[in-house]
Computed example of a mutant assay.
Amino acid sequence: MFVVTLKFSANKAKAPALMEGHNAWIRRGFDEGIFLLSGSTQPSAGGAVLAHNISRTDLEIRVQDDPFVVEDVVTVEILEITPGRTDERLAFLKA
């Protein structure tokens, strides 16, 4: 499981023009069963994505397709988590 943080860079002003493509990238991640959660980080610092069912290498490749990354609107950090204990509702993450 991975937490991907997308922190706005100095090119944040380009974000509105790229939002449609960024949202399509997020939608694709959900449609393909990779993304579990996405949202904005506060206050207006960027965003974060919770991902699973993918290798780190494949996730790194996927992240490079985000228009925000392509156009240097955000910097990316990927945190890999090996779930050891979960609430019953999230037990599927341990698989």
Rank of each mutant, 00 (worst) to 15 (best):
V3H: 07
V4S: 01
V4K: 00
T5H: 09
L6G: 09
K7R: 13
F8E: 01
A10Y: 05
A10D: 15
N11I: 02
K14M: 10
K14Q: 12
A17P: 01
A17K: 10
A17R: 09
A17I: 01
L18P: 07
M19R: 14
E20M: 11
E20D: 15
G21C: 07
H22R: 12
H22V: 06
H22Q: 09
N23C: 11
I26Y: 04
I26C: 08
I26F: 01
I26L: 14
R27F: 05
R27K: 15
G29N: 01
F30L: 10
F30P: 04
F30W: 06
E32W: 07
E32S: 15
G33L: 05
F35Q: 09
S38N: 09
S38P: 05
S40P: 14
Q42P: 04
P43H: 08
A45N: 05
G46F: 01
V49T: 07
L50I: 14
A51R: 06
S55R: 05
R56L: 13
T57G: 08
L59M: 03
E60A: 10
E60G: 09
I61Q: 12
R62D: 05
V63P: 02
V63H: 03
Q64N: 13
P67Q: 09
P67L: 08
F68K: 00
V70A: 04
V73D: 03
V73C: 07
V74Y: 04
V76W: 06
E77P: 03
E77G: 09
I78G: 00
E80G: 08
I81W: 08
I81Q: 10
I81N: 09
I81L: 15
T82I: 13
G84E: 13
R85L: 15
E88R: 14
R89N: 11
L93T: 14
K94E: 10
K94Y: 00
A95L: 07
